[in-house]
Nucleic acid binder design. Structure first.
Lengths: 217, 217
DNA sequence: AATCGTTTTTAGACAAGACTAAAAATATAT
DNA sequence: ATATATTTTTAGTCTTGTCTAAAAACGATT
């Protein structure tokens, strides 16, 4: 049996391991999980014992195939629940994370798969993140950062990289939502900000905001 | 914060305390929870510390108002989730218990109340058990045991006392479900069995089965 | 290659929740 | 009322997951 805590470590290692195929460092895990490095070392040993991770002292961790699948299935649950909360229970996208953190640990294959069916086999969660299927696979993201669009080009807001409360509330406040069509009107070299236009408004977004907006064409 | 384990104890004490206003014994709790009496003593002390229970050494436990409310809210969640699983996710009534045991511990007021609304503010779960409201209250059961019906009388199957797997599967196999109209045709004094009739069939049920069927008139 | 700073691991401690075995309190029976 | 049986509690141990403090390994610099 994989414990709740182990699942949380698997998830974190999975996420950190995505960018770059290199092993994940103890400190990186500790920082992301807001825990101490010594705790990470302990847990990582346990994951290795269970064949969920490959661990070499002082050299970081990678997930085994088994570990990667386990992580993907937790992420699958997390994202399905998030979508359920938004679509069926009137949660807004900045309220779902905390609850989904709990729901993702519920153990029942039938539950996940029925939930998946109930939601119509969705491919993306409320933040545009892809939802892994039963086998842990998902279609690669094919959206591009809005800063990589030439001025005059437009596309659909498909994914937000930062899904923190504050950022999502900023988007709410400014009437930006997934699915919106956005056109890039101007790039300002002084502060790297962007002028954009949606169906309902014209506005300036800072570079920091732009870095988190991904557009599908 | 009330832990998952504490919630399970509260729930058990609540259930055991229902029949009779007398204090619940350590052993009774231990047996119901399949744990050891010494573990119960430890936990009951903790509940008393937190003002969730009244505990006098060697004399058993009762819940405080606060503890009773906490227990009722866990039961509320359990029953709402059970109904959700049956109504929305194609679970049958003998499959829901284990999953609901997990879901009942999810902490989010918004989640429970939205779920309640999503299900249309139901009053009873798939086994006919009443669902407590936000304040922990529920309308008293007004169904009677089928053995207390005179022959010739009929009513609607409203509640099953035993909601174990085996019993529910027995009912499935014999096409008996909540909401069915049942008429008592005959009582057999030799083995206290009952002959009953539904819209689709005539059958004999043992006394043991009859003890678990409750009818609303 | 020796040193300094950083990262990682080890060793030992703690809290929660469970257990076993033994002691204490209560209940029952003669 | 005393002995016996049962129930409950206490005392001490274990596991899981965390922590702190100290030790060890790494790696960058000279």
């Amino acid at each position: 049996m994989v414990t709740r805590s182990e699942e949380n470590y698997l998830k974190t290692i999975y996420h950190l391991g995505k960018q770059g195929t290199i092993a994940v460092s103890t400190n990186a895990i500790a920082e992301k999980m807001e825990t101490k490095a010594s705790s990470v070392t302990d847990m990582v040993k346990k994951l290795a014992e269970k064949n969920l991770a490959n661990y070499i002292k002082y050299q970081g961790v990678t997930l085994t195939n088994e570990g990667r699948l386990a992580a993907a299935l937790v992420i699958r649950k997390h994202r399905l629940w998030e979508l359920f909360l938004v679509e069926k229970l009137n949660f807004s996208w900045d309220e779902v994370h905390e609850v989904a953190e709990q729901l993702e640990h519920i153990k029942s294959l039938k539950l996940v798969n029925e939930l998946d069916a109930f939601l119509g086999y969705p491919t993306h969660d409320p933040h545009g993140d892809p939802i892994p299927d039963k086998d842990g696979n998902y279609s690669p993201i094919n959206s591009v950062n809005i800063l990589d669009l030439d001025t005059g080009k437009e596309g659909i807001l498909a994914f937000v990289k930062d899904s923190s409360d504050v950022f999502l509330k900023y988007l709410n406040k400014n009437n930006l939502a997934l699915g919106d069509t956005i056109k890039v009107l101007d790039f300002e070299p002084f502060d790297n900000s962007l002028t954009i236009e949606t169906k309902t408004q014209k506005m300036i977004i800072s570079n920091e905001v732009a870095q988190n907006l991904y557009i599908s064409l």
